[in-house]
Design a protein around this nucleic acid. Structure first.
Lengths: 237, 237
DNA sequence: CAGTGGTCTAGACCACGCG
DNA sequence: GCGTGGTCTAGACCACTGG
């Protein structure tokens, strides 16, 4: 058994020594920590990188290194994941920013998933969700345009798509199928989430249909930051 | 929009330039890559770290940096995850090493989960799974000792627990409940998996019961390496 | 043994945030 | 403007792997 490297020992020491720092409050700066522990700044950085990998701190350029905590986000058959509700209960301030809905012909894959015919159009909606100004998830929804005519004129920049589907169009949307995995996001999504590089994120796919009409209403692909969300998926036989 | 740092540009270039390197074959050494691209070795290391974060390469001390690929591992209500089968189909050589079963009094939490009475004993079994000599998952199973008497004398070091439950004890085990999330493993498990530090792994919890008797047979906690397994969990309404 | 990746240092410059 | 974390360099020594 080899001896533990300095930076890992430091990561434990930092964790202990600053365990009383409240969530969202900064640790001492890297320069200061280097002085405190008598090591080079790069060694401190390696220790903080370990803590960041474990999602115990978040480092913000120009600002500092902050203690964090994840929000538990349960997904099960009975429980459709509701971003806003889950997070508000935990005491955070969630906001959604909707993009402009775009209408275009459906691709072959989209026609398969949504059960559409050749030549059918889809409305594409991109959304970004924020927690206290921090972008934490992206979502791209594909809806059959025939089922949501003039969506662009009814959906405001911060409105709820689910609410519009229910109240404006009169559907009863429910999550018929969903899937979760870890995946490296495309670079544009990584940029939207404010990530450096393309570290893997939690990819949620879902198919939402209407309990009344049986129509497939929406296919959604969503990336969630694993440092923010402790996504728990649960299966029962 | 700031300019992309050198190390991220390099990560893309390395990915392109060595895309023809077969899986499990090495890239040029860090020293060589530094010469090839005319940058410091630490910059090359930062680029390779980005590729390692994305699970595209694995770096092995003293040996080299290798291209990798993940194994898809589907979990759904109908499909109990079977490590051996999943992986053998993908062409890898899976092995399991069982620890020695240990009998001890059940904790309160274990009694809750397994429906045991005060004073009941449990048999604890630790397992490690390997893929081509690489440790890729750990599992700790807790079984009511009353249901698996003398387990230690019937389970060999490389035998299948499921097989023993079926053939020796005559049970019909099936996964009644399971849960998946990302979690930083305790340091002993991290060491078993050959990790540096305690990077988050996929934590699978499951409760296995017998379809014949209805007994709760086994509670299992398992850590899987996300660089090895592309775990996909699927829910249907 | 030679070659690999892992760790650590000293120093520098930069982009960003916030007051 | 100052302090923060982000990037990059040059150089060194080490532990480990493999022939």
């Amino acid at each position: 058994m080899q001896t533990e490297p300095i930076y890992l020992k430091l990561s434990h020491q930092i964790l202990e020594q600053f365990s009383d720092v409240p969530v969202n409050r900064p640790l001492p700066s890297e320069h200061d920590l280097g002085e405190i522990f008598g090591v080079n700044r790069q060694t401190i950085r390696a220790a903080l990188e370990e803590l960041e990998r474990r999602w115990l701190v978040r480092r913000v350029k120009g600002s500092g290194t902050f203690r964090t905590q994840r929000y538990e986000y349960r997904i099960s058959r009975d429980l459709a994941p509701s971003f806003t509700q889950t997070v508000r209960e935990a005491g955070a301030d969630p906001r959604t920013r909707n993009g402009k809905p775009v209408v275009r012909p459906a691709t072959e894959g989209e026609r398969d998933i949504l059960g559409l015919e050749l030549g059918a159009k889809v409305t594409v909606l991109e959304r970004v969700r924020f927690l206290d100004e921090l972008p934490v998830s992206t979502a791209v929804s594909i809806l059959p345009s025939a089922l949501v005519p003039r969506l662009a004129s009814v959906l405001t920049e911060d409105g709820s798509l689910d609410g519009i589907l229910r109240r404006h169009y009169g559907y009863a949307p429910h999550r018929q199928w969903s899937q979760s995995r870890l995946s490296s996001p495309p670079s544009d999504i990584a940029a939207t989430l404010g990530l450096r590089g393309q570290p893997p994120q939690i990819l949620l796919r879902g198919l939402i249909s209407c309990t009344l009409t049986g129509h497939k209403l929406e296919y959604v692909e969503s990336y969630l930051r694993p440092d923010v969300f402790d996504v728990v998926t649960e299966l029962r036989a």
